[in-house]
Simulated scan of single mutants.
Amino acid sequence: MTKDYRVNEEIRAREVRVIDPSGNQIGIMPLREALRLAEERQLDLVEIAPQAKPPVCKLMDYGKYKYEQSKREREARKRQRIINVKEVKLRPSIEEHDFQIKARNAARFLRDGDKVKATIMFRGREIMHTELGHQLLVRLAEQLKDLSIVERQPKLEGKNMVMILAPRPDLHKQEVKQEMEERG
């Protein structure tokens, strides 16, 4: 959550630089006087820069400040999108219908905002024909070019060839816009 500040009697400095709620500097004064000033205005004295010489303290309603901070954090978490990496596994000798099904699944993952890791698995002597796997991955990327960008070009890793597709950033913005319009 938010970082904790020292408030009122928790402050351990002799002198503090005081700032009023609107951000104007009041000046440097003894801690006791700053606490009295805060009490007169029915506010809290909050240490916002303890490492400064003298420490900087601000007059504010600390409860209200903490509430606003937590509200801001909740909003930020709500807007945050966790991107998963979904995997689509293919073989170099895949049939056309199976390829189309894998491509459709990859398209669905991309529309959901997830990245797609397309893997071609070579078995036995198939590794001699890596160009077939490369062609297949290029074909998949070509088929999904409206929905994705190639984040990592096809690359051989051991007995697998891997390519990573990421959803188009502009596509996600369009979907969010459509969703907002639907809600009214």
Rank of each mutant, 00 (worst) to 15 (best):
L136Y: 05
H97K: 07
K117N: 12
M161H: 01
L147I: 02
V162K: 01
E175G: 02
I164R: 01
M121R: 11
I120S: 01
Q135P: 11
R125M: 15
E126N: 02
H134Q: 15
L144S: 00
K173T: 13
F109T: 04
M121P: 06
F122H: 06
K159W: 11
A106T: 05
L132E: 15
M161V: 00
Q174W: 07
P169Q: 07
P169G: 07
R168S: 12
D112A: 14
I149P: 08
H172E: 14
L140G: 00
M161K: 00
L136F: 07
R125F: 14
A107D: 11
L147K: 01
L171P: 10
P167Q: 02
D114Q: 08
L110M: 05
R111I: 13
H97C: 09
E95I: 03
G133K: 02
G113P: 05
R123G: 15
K145G: 09
N105K: 14
M121C: 11
R123F: 15
P169D: 08
K159Y: 13
M163T: 00
A166D: 08
E96T: 06
E157N: 04
D112L: 13
Q100D: 12
K173Q: 15
E126L: 02
F99E: 06
R139Q: 14
G133M: 03
T130K: 12
I127H: 01
M161P: 03
R111P: 12
L147T: 02
K155W: 04
I94C: 08
E151I: 00
Q174D: 11
E175C: 03
